Structures are given as structure tokens and as C-alpha cells.
Computed example of a mutant assay.
Amino acid sequence: MVVAVSNRKWTLWVNIIKSIYGMDGGLGCNTNISVLRYSTAWRNIIKIGEELEKIGLNFNNLFVRTIGDGQDTRFWMDEWAGNFKLCDKYPRLFRLERKSDVFINERVTFSNGIWTFAWDWSRGLTGRLHGELEQVTSMVKSSINLQEGGSKWSFKMGASDETLRNNLIPQKIGIFVWRVMKGRIPVKVELDKTGIDLDTLLCPMCNDIVESVNHAILECKHAKEVWDGVFKWWNLPSPRNTSVVDWFSSRSSSGVSSVQMKMWQAIIWTTSYLIWKNRNQKTFQNVAWASAKIVNEVQTKAFEWIINRSRNLHYEWHQWLLNPTNLGFPLRNNLDPG
């Protein structure tokens, strides 16, 4: 899924947002929404970001910037070449720049396959500054693709809506599943690859096996107990060993009809999300739920989400607990989420 957002920095709308919520729009790491007077809509956006942070997803990192022609992106003072500003990375060069808030298109052009740079220094460059300038020009050539139009932000999931959206459950669950399939949740094996110094690579839940994505979501004995409970609830045999990619990519499951497939997908996605949430509680708060409580939470959350998001389901709570596969469709034989 891709949602493009215009990024005209000097428009009245952007200035209003900054004046009310700060330069980062209230999406920075130090925001405290309980003491700030946000509008309901903006507060909801911020809450989504906080919910994603709880499961290890950085809300801001899900947005990708397209520079366009560079006319509304500042060369030195905006983040466009990475998670940094060139003025911070190359402060000596920046001090020599005559126009600190210069835009990209005033310093860089690309035409007929040729890059042209128009620098304006307060004095000539000497010594190491020549090397730093070479780094900057190389970064420009590798980081941007100048094209017509202004810059914009895109929210990218990296795959089609068909495989990563299920209208029966919140979109944050789909985002989490996509991250799991891509191996982009912060399990200890992945953190170790980035050079982070950890006390141990063992799973925080079982303290027995090195924590990989597969282990955390499917193979840990605590995760297996949860899956056993969920499969028993649906009157299905316990799952066999598999990978998370196969697990989430499957369009069918033994014993589950095509009518029930979308609901079953909602259940396994929700289960995975709550297993990971429990793992994080153990890691950061040293508090973990018993597997039976997680299964109960799956039943509760899934019931609430599915009933509220589908026009065609007619379930009573006791029916849901006793026989969730006995769907209540009076008119249709497929799910039609609202």
C-alpha cells in the first residue's frame, strides 16, 4: 500500500501544524500527548505511532521521501540523504555555505546524464574539506533522483494490499506481519547483526534458544503453547514446523473452508501480534502473561475487531468461544468487511 502526502514546507498548513505541535508535528520521540492539546485527529495519528513503537516498529521510518525537483527541500538543513542532516554531518562545510537554507535545486541539477553542482562558499576550500566535499557529491548522486514536481512522502508497506491487509483487524497488525515476513522485528539475532552489544542472544521467554524471528513467533515453547490453544479452540490439529513466511503467506489451512479463510487469517495475525507484545512485556517490564491468558486475549480482541468491522457477521460471545467456525452469514457465504 502506498499513500502519497504532499510536502510543501512553506505552505500555511505546515506552518500551522508546526506552530501548534512543534517542529516535528508532535511525532518526535519526546512527545507527551497527555499534556498537549492536540486535535482528536492529530492525537489519533500520534497514538498509532506509539502503538507501533510498542511492538518495535518506528512510525517515522515507515515513510519514504521522494525529492522531486529539489525546489522545496533544503540542501543542508533537511533530512533527505538518510536519517541525518548534511549540516550536522559536515559542519565545517556548512559554516562556509553563504546561504544556509539553500534548496537542493539551487546547488544541484541533473540534465542529459550530467550532474552539475553550483557551490557558493564564503572562502576557498582547503585540506580535508576537499575530501568532505567529494563525499557530499557522491552522496547526492547515490541518494536522489531529480524529477519534475515537488517532494512528497510515501507510506510503503512493501507488498500488495491483498497479502497484507485484512479489513477485519487494525492495519497496525498488517504492518507488524509484513515486518515479521521481512525479518524486520528487533529479535536478538537481528540486533546483534547491527553491532548492538547484548548481554545474551537467548530468547527472553524461554532463555533456552537463540532468539530468531521464527523462534520468537513460532518455535519458542511459550509461543507453541499459545498456538496449541488457538488451534484447539478452532478444532484444528496443532501446527507443524514451518517458517514465518510460509505461515503468513498461506491462503488456506487444513480443515478451514474458503468461507472462513479471511477470519482464520485475522486470527493467526492477531495471535502473532499478541505473542510478540507479550515478548516485549517480558523484555522491558519483566512481566509475561501465561499462554492461556494470551489465548483469551486473542479471543477477546479478535471478537471485538471482527464484529465491529464486518457487516455480515452475527455472533454471540458464547458462540464465538464454543464454535468460532460456525459463521453467522444469513445472506452470503463470504466475508464482506465494512
Score class of each variant (00 low, 15 high):
Phe303His: 03
Gln71Gly: 04
Asn333Met: 13
Thr31Tyr: 09
Ile217Ser: 00
Met181Asn: 04
Glu51Gly: 02
Phe231His: 13
Arg332Glu: 15
Leu93His: 07
Asn286Gln: 14
Gly131Ala: 12
Ile307Val: 13
Gly150Ser: 11
Trp80Phe: 13
Asn105Pro: 01
Val244Ser: 01
Pro170Ile: 01
Asn7Pro: 00
Ile104Met: 08
Cys87Leu: 06
Trp119Arg: 08
Thr194Gly: 05
Trp317Ser: 01
Gly150Gln: 06
Gly113Asn: 09
Gln319Ala: 07
Thr73Gly: 07
Arg279Thr: 11
Glu97Cys: 14
Lys85Met: 14
Arg165Glu: 04
Gln260Glu: 13
Lys47Ala: 12
Lys47Glu: 09
Gln319Cys: 04
Glu50Gln: 12
Phe117Ile: 07
Phe303Met: 06
Ala216Trp: 03
Val189Lys: 09
Ser258Cys: 13
Lys182Asp: 05
Asp228His: 08
Asn44Ala: 13
Asn207Lys: 15
His215Asp: 04
Glu225Gly: 00
Asp78Ser: 11
Ser154Arg: 07
Ser258Gly: 15
Leu198Pro: 13
Ile144Asp: 05
Trp233Tyr: 13
Arg279Trp: 12
Glu316Pro: 00
Arg8Val: 10
Gln171Pro: 01
Cys220Ala: 07
Gln299Leu: 10
Leu62Lys: 09
Gly28Gln: 11
Asn112Gln: 09
Pro170Gly: 02
Pro237Cys: 09
Gly328Lys: 12
Met205Glu: 06
Gln171Asp: 03
Arg128Ser: 15
Asp72Ser: 12
Arg311Pro: 01
Ile144Lys: 04
Glu148Gln: 09
Lys182Asn: 13
Val35Ser: 10
Asp228Gly: 01
Cys206Thr: 10
Thr11His: 14
Val140Pro: 06
Ala288Phe: 02
Glu190Pro: 01
Gly26Lys: 02
Gly49Gln: 01
Gly49Leu: 04
Asn333Pro: 03
Gly28Cys: 10
Asp69Leu: 06
Phe329Leu: 15
Glu132Val: 02
Leu191Arg: 15
Ser258Thr: 12
Asp197Ala: 11
Trp247Asn: 00
Asp72Cys: 10
Asn61Trp: 07
Glu50Gly: 06
Ser111Arg: 12
Ile209Val: 15
Asn44Lys: 12
Gln281Thr: 09
Val180Asp: 00
Trp264Gly: 12
Val108Gln: 05
Ile33Gln: 01
Leu36Ala: 04
Phe59Gln: 07
Thr300Tyr: 10
Val2Met: 00
Leu86Thr: 01
Trp178Ser: 04
Val245Glu: 10
Asp88Val: 02
Ile45Gln: 06
Asn241Gln: 10
Met261Asp: 11
Asn296Ser: 15
Thr300Gly: 02
Lys232Leu: 12
Gln71Tyr: 05
Arg65Tyr: 07
Gly174Gln: 02
Val140Tyr: 08
Arg65Phe: 08
His222Leu: 07
Ala292Arg: 11
Tyr273Arg: 02
Gln299Asp: 05
Pro186Ala: 02
Asp161Leu: 08
Glu316Leu: 02
Asn207Met: 11
Arg43Gly: 09
Phe303Val: 03
Ser291Leu: 01
Leu218Phe: 01
Asn334Gly: 10
Trp320Asn: 03
Lys47Gln: 14
Asn30Ser: 11
His314Gly: 09
Arg311Val: 08
Leu331Asp: 12
Met23His: 12
Thr73Arg: 07
Met139Ser: 07
Lys182His: 13
Glu79Trp: 13
Asn32Ser: 11
